[in-house]
Each structure stands twice: as C-alpha cells, then as structure tokens.
C-alpha cells in the first residue's frame, strides 16, 4: 500500500465505509473543526459605508433570519468538510463533496443583493454540472476495479483508469468553484462576512483532499 498521507493512525468502521485518520487527513479534519467552531462563536460583520464629504456613515443591519440561515449553512458546510476529509470510500467522498458544494450555494444565496444572487445562481449551475463527472468517476472506479474502498484501491495491484481520476478532479473543481463567485460578488466585504470564508476554506480543503485521493488511487 502506498501511503501518501502517512500511515493510518486509527480506523472507524461504518460497515464497508471505513473512515481512517492519517497524519494528513487528521490535520485537515482539525482545520475544518477549528473553523467550524469559529463560525459557531463568531458574530457577523456590519459593513460601514462612509458618506463622502461628510461625517455621516451608514451601518448595514443583518436580519436575524439571514444570520441564522447562513450560520446554519456554514456549520453544515464545516461538518460536510470534516466528513470529506477523513472518509475512506470513493463514493462517500463524492457525496460529501457534493454536500460541500450545495452548502456553498446556500451560503452565497442567502445574501439579499441582486448581483450576489446572480452569482449564486451561476455557481449553483456549476455545482449541479460538477456532480456529473464526480459521480461518473465513482461509477467508473466501481466498474473497473470492483471496489470503492480507498484502502483497497491504494494497493498496487489495482489500477484505476486515468479517465476516472481526471473526471474526479474535474467534478471537485466544479464543486469547489465557490471562491471565484464569492470574490467576484465582493462577498468577503458584504454584510455578514465571516460565514463566506467557509466557502473558500471548504473549497481549499476538498482540493487538498482530492489531491491525496488521486495519488492514492
């Protein structure tokens, strides 16, 4: 077995889906966990606009419902990230990645601003389209190797076709496209800022994890 992320420290079995913690995945898991706790305790930022040429300024209020919804989405995104970081099954990984994608859509879509909503719509389409290569990759892995467990696939005797790996990367790219939209829609400075960081962080984490998965297969 080729151990890209180090030797597995311990296993957590859910039937055929074996979650395993290597030094690499445990680091990513802890990162996601810490950020989820930050989201849990942080309060949203209020954007301040200064009126030009005077002393006046406007503070934008964030309604309680929007705050609650986006916090919920960020926490769900954090949990999905944690799952995607440590799961040891290709199909389970694709499911967690698509969960991350849809949570990102939710975080972006909750903002009450027209161009942000437009960006969220476009991103939703990309996330939808991204599931096709993602699940196609999982199906190809299952069909050509007869197994989905990463621990089995990591053995040198099993060869995964290159096309399946490429499709997996393409699918994760589609799901992790959120930072493009978030940055363009100026969401980091929009009201309720801290939750949007979860978009970028989750995309970064799933990219890091898919690199490990590709090297493992």
């Amino acid at each position: 077995m080729n151990e890209i992320g180090g030797a597995p420290l311990f296993f957590l079995e859910f039937g055929d889906i074996v979650i395993y913690f290597t030094p690499f995945t445990i680091t990513l898991f802890l990162l996601a966990l810490v950020f989820t706790v930050f989201v849990l305790v942080s309060r949203p930022e209020r954007q301040i606009d200064i009126a030009f040429g005077g002393d006046a300024y406007y503070a934008k209020e964030i309604s309680l419902s929007e705050l609650r919804f986006r916090r919920f989405m960020s926490i769900a995104c954090g949990l999905a990230c944690m799952g995607a970081m440590v799961t040891g099954d290709v199909f389970d990984f694709t499911l967690f990645v698509s969960l991350v994608g849809i949570c990102n859509v939710g975080i972006v879509a909750a903002v009450k601003s027209r161009h942000v909503q437009n960006a969220a719509y476009q991103y939703g389409l990309v996330a939808l389209a991204g599931t096709v290569p993602l699940f196609a990759a999982a199906a190809m892995v299952a069909a050509t190797t007869g197994t989905l467990s990463m621990l089995e696939l990591a053995k040198d005797t099993i060869q995964v076709p290159l096309a399946a790996r490429a499709l997996l990367v393409l699918g994760v790219m589609g799901e992790g496209m959120a930072p493009f939209y978030a940055a363009k829609a100026e969401m980091f400075r929009a009201p309720g800022a801290p939750y949007v960081i979860m978009c970028s962080l989750s995309s970064l984490l799933i990219f890091l994890r898919v690199a490990e998965v590709i090297l493992l297969l």
């Binding site: 859910f14 039937g15 055929d16 889906i17 989405m73 769900a76 999905a80 799952g83 799961t87 099954d89 199909f91 389970d92 499911l95 967690f96 698509s98 969960l99 849809i102 949570c103 939710g106």
Partner: peptide, 15 residues
C-alpha cells in the same frame, strides 16, 4: 454495510 452513504444522501436533499 453502506449506511453512511444513506445518511449523507438525505442530508444533501435536506440542505
């Protein structure tokens, strides 16, 4: 045997 998948799938729907 694949219970975790079945948990994650409805979670996606719920979200």
């Amino acid at each position: 045997t694949r219970g975790l998948d079945t948990v994650v799938e409805p979670t996606i729907l719920f979200i």
